[in-house]
Computed example of a mutant assay.
Amino acid sequence: MTWDAPESQMLLFRLGERTLALESQHARGVMVPEQITPLPGVGPVLLGLLAVGGQNVPLIDLGVLLDLPTIEAAHAAPYTAPYTAPYTVAVAEVSGQWFAFPIDEAHSFAAGAVVQAHDRLLAPAAPIGERMAERLNAPAVLSALHNSISRP
């Protein structure tokens, strides 16, 4: 298979045993949050809110959306009071809407082919820098978050 698609800079990170990539146009940073405010009763995707640059940003568990081991299972949550996260998070933005998600490890930024994910949350693995990584479709993740919290 050849990779003739245009290239983009992407943030490479590890989630469980998988290497994922987030296009730099959506990546806003990687941080260890000082405090997370849980939102009990909103479902398993939304872990709570965290403060980023003076605004509250939803913290989502990608494991739930991607059918991977979840952060709650890995860290014996859910929490019912504000807590300090035992993990690092990546912060993303799509059309002015911000969200964050826990990651196991941030690798680096690297150039790679933009493989179309269409409506899927992940594009097939492709070479990005020196790694094979699945590209996270940030707009689809945001849509899945909206769908998960708008269900009755």
Score class of each variant (00 low, 15 high):
L142H: 06
G63N: 04
R135W: 08
G129Q: 09
R28M: 14
F109T: 08
E17C: 03
V89N: 02
H118A: 15
P40A: 03
E23A: 11
V141C: 08
A123E: 06
T19K: 09
D4V: 11
F99Q: 09
A73V: 00
L11F: 02
L142A: 07
D104Y: 06
M132G: 15
I60G: 00
M31G: 00
R120Q: 10
A125K: 15
H26F: 08
G53S: 08
T37A: 12
A77K: 07
P152I: 14
D61T: 04
H107I: 15
E34D: 15
Q55F: 00
D104L: 05
L68M: 15
A117T: 07
V45I: 12
R120F: 08
L12Y: 06
T80D: 08
G129W: 02
T19S: 12
A92E: 01
Q25E: 11
A73C: 00
W3M: 12
A126S: 14
P124D: 12
Q25D: 12
I103K: 04
V94N: 11
A74C: 09
L49D: 03
A5L: 12
G54C: 01
S150G: 12
T37I: 14
L50M: 14
V45P: 05
M31K: 07
L142E: 01
V42T: 14
S95G: 06
I60Y: 02
A111D: 14
Q97M: 04
P38E: 04
R28G: 02
H118P: 04
T37G: 02
G41I: 00
H118Y: 12
Q35V: 15
E134Y: 06
Y83S: 07
V42N: 06
L122I: 07
T84Y: 03
L68E: 11
A138N: 03
M31L: 14
L46P: 02
V64I: 08
F13V: 07
L121A: 02
A100K: 01
L22C: 09
E7S: 12
V57A: 01
F101W: 11
A77I: 05
L68F: 11
L121E: 03
N137E: 08
V115H: 09
A125G: 14
H146D: 05
P78I: 01
L12A: 09
L46V: 13
L47T: 01
G54Q: 01
A21S: 13
G29R: 00
A140L: 09
I60A: 11
M1W: 11
H75G: 06
E72H: 06
E134Q: 13
G48I: 07
R28N: 10
L22Q: 00
A117W: 07
G96I: 04
E93F: 06
Y79D: 05
E72Q: 10
G41H: 00
G54L: 04
Y79G: 03
F99R: 03
G29C: 01
E105V: 01
P82E: 00
V141L: 10
A81D: 08
S95V: 08
V42S: 09
H75N: 15
L122R: 05
S95E: 14
L142M: 11
L12R: 10
L20Y: 12
L136C: 03
D61Q: 06
P69K: 02
N137K: 07
Q116S: 15
L47W: 07
T88Q: 10
H26T: 02
L65W: 03
A138C: 13
E17I: 07
T2K: 11
